[in-house]
């Protein structure tokens, strides 16, 4: 599903953000990507959804080499993915409902289908009662759940989450992880970047561990 072959990424000359990273993730897998701050977790995720390009190496998503995807076809790769960003990336001038509907709107889905998919996603993350609020008027945990709902609403093949519980208390973090488990149970591959060891112990899964850009365990 996701394959990295000797991937390097360098932002500044003297330092590699990622160095010779190789691994593969099977379809339907649920795994963690961990490492200290600055280890390269976010960079690795960005390489998957092609917001960054590797300096060297090959990345295959669903057997397709991302280096060979032209700009015009990039949307096809991104439609396979659902992404939960560390900073949520919600639109503050739109309601929670409208935020979640964005991936469906850009795909040209019909309004009744959008309605039912968004309502399902809202129910899954437990935010039906907040659908007409704007993100600024709900808590950080609720914003996090909006971001998750938006990531799963269009039924992606892969869900990527960058520190999805970074701003949440333990109780809420556990709830969010349980939510990821439910999403994974529907066959969606889930890759979560986190440095929360406690949560990883509570949800024992395969772990990709990065240290200063090198993959030290997978």
């Amino acid at each position: 599903m996701i394959e990295f072959y000797h991937v390097y990424k360098q932002y500044v000359k003297s330092q590699f953000a990622l160095s010779d990273v190789s691994f593969s993730i099977e379809k339907g897998e649920f795994l963690f990507l961990t490492g200290a701050s600055g280890a390269g977790k976010t960079t690795l995720l960005k390489l998957i959804f092609k917001e960054e390009l590797p300096g060297k190496g090959q990345i295959l998503i669903d057997s397709e080499n991302t280096n060979l995807i032209p700009q015009k076809k990039l949307f096809k790769l991104r439609r396979k993915l659902g992404i939960v960003f560390q900073d949520f990336k919600l639109l503050n001038n739109r309601t929670i409902y409208e935020n979640i509907a964005v991936p469906l709107l850009v795909r040209g889905i019909r309004r009744p289908t959008i309605d039912s998919s968004v309502n399902d996603a809202l129910a899954l993350v437990g935010l039906t009662h907040r659908k007409h609020y704007i993100p600024a008027h709900v808590s950080g945990g609720e914003q996090q759940r909006v971001a998750i709902a938006r990531a799963i609403v269009a039924n992606p093949k892969i869900l990527l989450a960058d520190e999805p519980t970074g701003n949440l208390d333990t109780e809420l973090s556990i709830e969010i992880f349980k939510l990821f488990e439910r999403i994974n149970a529907n066959g969606i591959t889930v890759l979560i970047a986190t440095h929360d060891d406690h949560l990883m112990q509570l949800f024992p899964r395969r772990v990709l561990k990065l240290d200063k850009g090198k993959l030290i365990s997978h």
């Binding site: 917001e51 700009q71 949307f75 991104r78 439609r79 990336k89 850009v106 795909r107």
Partner: peptide, 16 residues
């Protein structure tokens, strides 16, 4: 800018 970026990341085509 942010909205455009989000649209791109969730799979919007360039013309959209």
């Amino acid at each position: 800018k942010d909205e455009i970026n989000i649209f791109r990341l969730v799979g919007a085509q360039d013309w959209y």
